[in-house]
């Protein structure tokens, strides 16, 4: 186990975490502002990946694919918000869970109907493929490094958007007191649609970016959705800063746990048993992390309210 390998795994963990952040940021904004639990967020991730794969396949341009992912997911998000989600704000969590679960069924089967059950492939463009040598002699894929950079840039953009712009002020005000900002003359319905579309676009972007590493298929969004839930529970629902920290924690735990726990177990038991026990523990590690955080802080690391 060399230092280079460890450094590579840390980078992988960062890359995974930053993609989770894109997904979880939308989820936490939507919950923070509208008080809505959106299980269908994973479907928007999938929509983004499919838009990117379809457009990149037709035009041959990866960048156009990304633009399509952003636009397609934002559009799907806005549409769903106007047709269905809008009617759910006043309802309790149970109804929200059910209705958005129903949306998952509709999105997944609809996509299967349009594109079939076979996975699509989204190729990494020529200029981003191949490895790059980092300081210290670490060989690392350019594309994954690009994902980290894009993710960090988007995260910075999001912090600026929330912290410095007019719409950001409205979003923060919406998190604190919905009735009050409606009374102050802000079109709350429009704000909700914008926030939802923004969250959807982030999810779609994540889907398209990850889609080039993995295959693009129906049901790809749900495993990520659940990890995103773990992220926002750890970070504290509604907090963007908490989400970023939670996402990096989960990404690193997941990636490093998969590598190091089997090795660690080998100290205590026979190699074959160690591999299987280590793999079991690694797959559960992030949930153990979440349980631990909630025992110490029931509203997450940066959560203000229950």
């Amino acid at each position: 186990m060399s230092l280079v390998l460890i450094a590579e795994q840390v980078l992988n963990g960062l890359q995974f975490g930053i993609m989770l952040f894109l997904m979880a940021a939308g989820l936490t904004l939507i919950f923070g502002v509208m008080g809505l639990i959106n299980l269908a967020h994973g479907s928007l991730y999938m929509v983004g990946a499919f838009c990117a794969a379809a457009v990149a396949g037709a035009t041959g341009s990866f960048l156009l694919g990304l633009v399509a992912a952003l636009a397609g997911a934002a559009l799907a998000g806005a549409l769903v918000e106007i047709v269905v989600i809008r009617r759910l704000y006043a309802k309790d969590h149970l109804d929200q869970v059910l209705a958005t679960f129903a949306l998952i069924l509709i999105f997944s089967e609809g996509t299967r109907w349009l594109f079939g059950s076979f996975p699509l492939y989204l190729n990494v463009p020529e200029y981003l493929s191949g490895p790059v040598t980092l300081p210290g002699g670490i060989e690392y894929p350019v594309y994954r490094l690009t994902l980290i950079v894009i993710g960090l840039v988007v995260a910075l953009g999001l912090f600026l958007l929330i912290g410095k712009t007019r719409i950001g002020v409205q979003i923060r005000a919406g998190e604190n007191d919905r009735e009050m900002i409606a009374a102050l003359g802000i079109d709350i319905g429009r704000l909700y649609t914008i926030v939802f579309a923004l969250g959807a676009a982030l999810a779609g972007l994540a889907g398209a970016l990850v889609g080039a590493i993995q295959s693009v298929q129906v049901g790809m969004g749900e495993p990520v959705l659940i990890l995103a839930f773990v992220v926002i529970v750890i970070g504290g629902i509604g907090s963007i800063k908490g989400t970023l920290i939670g996402a990096l924690l989960v990404g690193l735990t997941q990636t490093l746990g998969g590598i190091f726990l089997p090795e660690l177990m080998k100290i205590f038991m026979a190699p074959s048993a160690a591999t299987s026990v280590g793999a079991s523990l690694a797959s559960m590690a992030i949930y153990v992390l979440m349980a631990a955080v909630l025992i110490v802080r029931p509203t997450g690391l940066f959560g203000a309210r229950a």
Binding site: F229, V233, G300
Partner: peptide
Amino acid sequence: RTSGAYFIMITLA
């Protein structure tokens, strides 16, 4: 120990 949305998500997890 948690309630509301946290409870839904933690049971899911």
